[in-house]
Computed example of a mutant assay.
Amino acid sequence: MSTHRLQFYREAGQFLAVAGDHLAADPVVSTVVTTVAHRLSARRDEGAAQADRDWWLVVRDATGAVVGAGMRAAPFAPYPPYLLPMPDDAAVALAAALQERGEEVLAVNGALPAAELCAAELARLGGGRVSVGQHTRLHELGELVPPTPVPGRLVVATEDDLALATEWFAAFMGDADEQAGRPRGASAHEVPDRADILRRIRTGRVWFWIDEAGRPVHLTAANPPSFGVARVGPVYTPPAQRGRGWASNAVAEVSRRIRAEGARACLFTDQANPTSNKIYAALGYRPVVDMANLVILR
């Protein structure tokens, strides 16, 4: 039996008010939850609707202190909960709570071992088994190591670039699956729609690397800083342009700009993609925590 208390919140703003200090204490590990919470809280203030299935979780210990957090706010099927680190018994108790709430949960993402423990208990309670969809690793930039310079320069995307940015955002996940040896579409991830990409462009968080002829050959984006941490991604180079150093130089310059804003830089890598892991390590990114996207097969 868990010694921890689970509290669910409907609104991201309520969740941030309660869990903000806990999230801010380790803002790199919390980056996905905090950026999504801040984004959805802002949209709610603008009158945007919230999906009925969405929730925000706070885990408290016997003293009432916040010791864990999570969310279910994914806009893509099968709408996996995303868990931050929490006590083991709380992760197991969460599975039982979700079953009691009548929620169908066919995938769990987030930090290990919390995501793994919750998924395993969900599979035990509902029948089935857990399969790994993707192993990811969160990295934070230490000392930035400039890469070998290449021709061209980084430019901020404009609204005129919306069509190309939308195309490359959409291509990113499928190509990443192939590079990691998975079938295209095997990874369930959010693909931002045109409206969301336009918002990112308008806030200056999408960049292209252009070659000497002024042609865009690479895209790097980043989230706005949340609790002083900005997460880089996606990072996409079309197949015909790969192996030329565009990605290394673009990510290095975006990371430098994030640092110049006074924020820390982090990013995720797919552990099955040795190329990207090697590139980011060479730039000075260091592992922080392993995470996984887990699928419950029934």
Rank of each mutant, 00 (worst) to 15 (best):
R231I: 12
V295D: 08
P224N: 14
I258W: 01
A250W: 00
R242T: 07
T269Q: 03
P287R: 06
A252R: 01
T275P: 14
A213D: 10
E261D: 13
P238G: 12
I296D: 02
D290V: 09
V217Q: 05
L294Y: 06
A263S: 05
V289K: 13
H218Y: 15
L294V: 05
D270P: 11
G243I: 08
A272V: 03
V235M: 01
E253C: 08
Y236C: 04
A247E: 02
R259Y: 15
S248A: 12
I210K: 12
K278D: 15
V217F: 03
N223E: 15
D290L: 12
A247F: 02
F227Y: 10
I210Q: 09
R256D: 09
Y236D: 00
N293V: 11
P225F: 02
A240N: 12
R242Q: 09
P234G: 08
N249D: 06
D270K: 10
W209Y: 13
S255E: 05
N277Q: 12
A263R: 02
V289T: 07
R259G: 11
R257K: 09
A213L: 11
G228Y: 08
V217G: 02
E261V: 14
G228R: 10
G214H: 02
R215F: 15
W246G: 08
L294I: 03
I210N: 08
P238W: 12
M291G: 14
A250S: 04
Q241S: 10
A230L: 12
V229I: 15
G214I: 05
L283W: 06
A292C: 11
R215M: 12
Y280W: 04
G262C: 10
S248D: 09
F268Y: 14
V217T: 01
I296S: 02
G233Q: 01
V251L: 04
N249M: 11
L267F: 08
R231Q: 14
V235A: 03
P238M: 06
I258P: 01
V235L: 08
D290E: 13
H218S: 10
G262H: 07
L219T: 06
G284V: 01
G233Y: 01
P239N: 04
I210L: 09
G243Y: 10
R286A: 08
V217E: 05
H218F: 13
A247K: 02
T269C: 02
Y280S: 01
A281R: 04
M291F: 14
